[in-house]
């Protein structure tokens, strides 16, 4: 008899094929598994830090630090749900922050001075334009989104260093700083509130509009969507355009929080946004996932990082732990999805 290594994989394959016919029998936890993972993590954090974690000041810090990545991850989620990826979100955010900061700054900078509302508008339009370029190219050419947005990412980084001469933007309009430091009701930081608002906008766009329904369809099966009358290039244009605007918003929140922006800032933004989307359980194969998942992904990573800070874990080890979290979370999500399918 000729027993071989392939036995196992072949059987697995056939298992999946048959699984498609079977009725769905698994159960889902209310709120999704990741909500329970987050809660468990919070309980663990409370126990390990002897209650420091649960102090309102610490919790608001966690949320405050999450707000930028929170909005950026929604931008990324749009691209991922459409079965793409946007590697340019981080660079777009920083470029927008530089433009808004520079234009609203009283001192001379690389952009002409503009009143604050116009400066903010300029930052948002910049995000929209970059997103539209990504979306146009993804919709009209066969080049994968990964490559297109990698290229735009490099172009944006190059241009930001060129126009700013690699120097920081220091003195944005004081109102921006004020917004960054404001506490609503003396507790909730204003950027966190802004994050909540954009979670709401993202939710409405995905669930309550025609465009959201089309986005999910294109992400799930582009051919089937096209054969059902969906204008695929237009959907992609809108998707990446939205991602660009959300990225610009994230950049402005970053500016508000720090008050100073360097062209070299935000180096980890892009990967953090992808990590949050993946940990939240959004399928990188597109067409499956909700805004809720993105938010949970961001929070899980933020709580883990906060816990390690409180416990004095070294930054280097933190990166390694983060890597492990991503791997475990994505693996668990795939397993759960498969379990449900059977």
């Amino acid at each position: 008899m000729n027993v071989s290594d392939s036995t196992r994989t072949e059987v697995k394959k056939s298992e999946q094929q048959i699984a498609a016919e079977e009725p769905r029998t698994g159960r889902q936890l209310p709120g999704g598994t990741m909500l329970w993972v987050l809660l468990a993590l919070c309980v663990l954090a409370m126990a390990l830090t002897k209650g420091v974690f649960i102090r309102p000041s610490n919790l608001t810090t966690v949320l405050f630090q999450s707000s930028v990545i929170g909005v950026l991850a929604i931008a990324q989620a749009f691209a991922v749900l459409c079965r793409g990826l946007d590697l340019s979100v981080g660079a777009t955010a920083i470029f927008s922050a530089l433009v808004v900061g520079g234009a609203s700054s009283a001192t001379d900078s690389f952009v002409p001075h503009l009143p604050l509302p116009l400066a903010i508008l300029a930052g948002l339009v910049l995000g929209l334009v970059i997103g539209a370029v990504n979306g146009f190219l993804t919709g009209r050419t066969p080049v994968p989104a990964f490559i297109i947005t990698l290229s735009t990412y490099l172009v944006i980084v190059g241009v930001t260093f060129l126009v700013t001469n690699a120097s920081p933007v220091n003195n944005p309009d004081p109102l921006i700083r004020k917004f960054g430091d404001a506490r609503i009701g003396g507790l909730i930081p204003a950027p966190v509130l802004a994050w909540l608002v954009f979670i709401g906008i993202g939710y409405l766009l995905l669930n309550k509009t025609k465009y959201g329904a089309m986005l999910y369809a294109v992400g799930g099966n582009e051919t089937a969507a096209r054969l059902s009358g969906v204008r695929v290039p237009r959907v992609k244009l809108l998707t990446y355009g939205t991602a660009g605007v959300f990225a610009a918003v994230a950049g402005i929140l970053f500016l508000a929080r720090t008050g100073t922006v360097l062209p070299s800032d935000g180096g980890s933004f892009m990967l953090d946004s992808i990590a949050a989307v993946a940990v939240g359980g959004i399928s990188l194969n597109g067409g499956k996932g909700r805004i809720r998942d993105v938010v949970l992904g961001v929070l899980i990573l933020a709580v883990a990082s906060n816990l390690m800070n409180l416990m004095g874990v070294s930054q280097y080890l933190q990166a390694a732990v983060q890597g492990a979290i991503i791997l475990v979370a994505v693996g668990a999500n795939l397993r759960l999805a498969k379990g449900r399918a059977e």
Partner: peptide, 27 residues
């Protein structure tokens, strides 16, 4: 090519009729 497998029965049914089933972009 006939269905978006990961999406629901209702979403698939609606896909060609989304224009009719929305007003000003809102479903």
């Amino acid at each position: 090519t006939g269905l978006v497998l990961s999406r629901s029965v209702s979403e698939n049914l609606m896909l060609p009729s989304l224009d009719r089933l929305s007003r000003g972009g809102a479903l």
